[in-house]
Amino acid sequence: MLEAVTPLDNVLEVRDLKVWFPVRSGFLAGLLRRKEKFVHAVDGINFDVRRGEVFCLVGESGCGKTTTARSILRLIDPTSGKIELKEADMATDLFSATKETVKTLRPKIQLIFQDPYESLDPKMSVLDQLSEPLQVNKTAGTRKEKMDRVFSALSDVGLIPPETFLYRYPHELSGGQRQRVGIASSMILNPVLVIADEPVSMVDVSMRSEILGIMLDIKKKGRATFVLITHDFSLAWAVGDRIAVMYSGKIVEMGPTFSVIREPKHPYTRALISVVPVPDPTLQRKRIILSGEVPDPVDVPSGCRFHPRCPIAKEMCKTKEPEMQTAASEHEVACHFWQEPFP
């Protein structure tokens, strides 16, 4: 796997994670005992998240990125694998952990939701929203302690002065402010790992940077590590330290942001990068437009899952699944022919 990393540097280690959902079949099929089918949402992925970084999981819808995130949070139960959360003196496998253990670990792994219009309770004031996690986890003793933490959480996300926001309800906030409250409530328990699932896709472009800036600030102060889930390479470009590209439940390429975006190795990544939207009408570039669509996760193609759409696929790709191989420093790719010339 990745070299020169002592295990302690990682906050999270994911090994051979699989999440399969059974496909509900009809009554008759059940009687006839047809073979049960599964949606292979995540199908054996490996990655590490290093302390203090922004790790990006990038891919199109249905590639399994959100399912991966939900497994880390144990909001769904993975089928097999290992998800290890590493702290200074202990490591806990979230896959085999009991419900009680998961509960005690909840404050340490938090989620920033995509849609600030749906993730906040319309009947809760900002103060209630932020105190709830403190009460549930019984972390703030006195009222003063609670207020202090709410105040500092609000200042951290740039809602200043905090006292003017305490008694506001979500409908009295703009989209950007709502997302800030969302981040504040994810950060108030001082989590070790924060999973941000498309945190700015519902925020207007002119305000996105402010929201991302808050995350980067928290990261720079060393207060949390982030896993950013996005479909947008330009977002990963702006804030990510490392990128893992997913396709049909697999990681196809992983490496440092610069290297993955400027020197992509996998044909899928190459194609995606070549069509990343750029607001420049004079830009001349060769766009690789893939035909077809992401495969059906119930019936994944044999061999390399990308072969039906791949411009450089050969016979071997139909039968043999490619393994991760090192292509450059810390840069891995799962393709048999990544070294071949690309059209």
Partner: peptide
């Protein structure tokens, strides 16, 4: 405000 993968790696300016 749009990040550009052909530009430098930084947070774009917001309004």
């Amino acid at each position: 405000a749009f990040p550009n993968i052909y530009g430098s790696r930084e947070l774009p300016a917001s309004i």
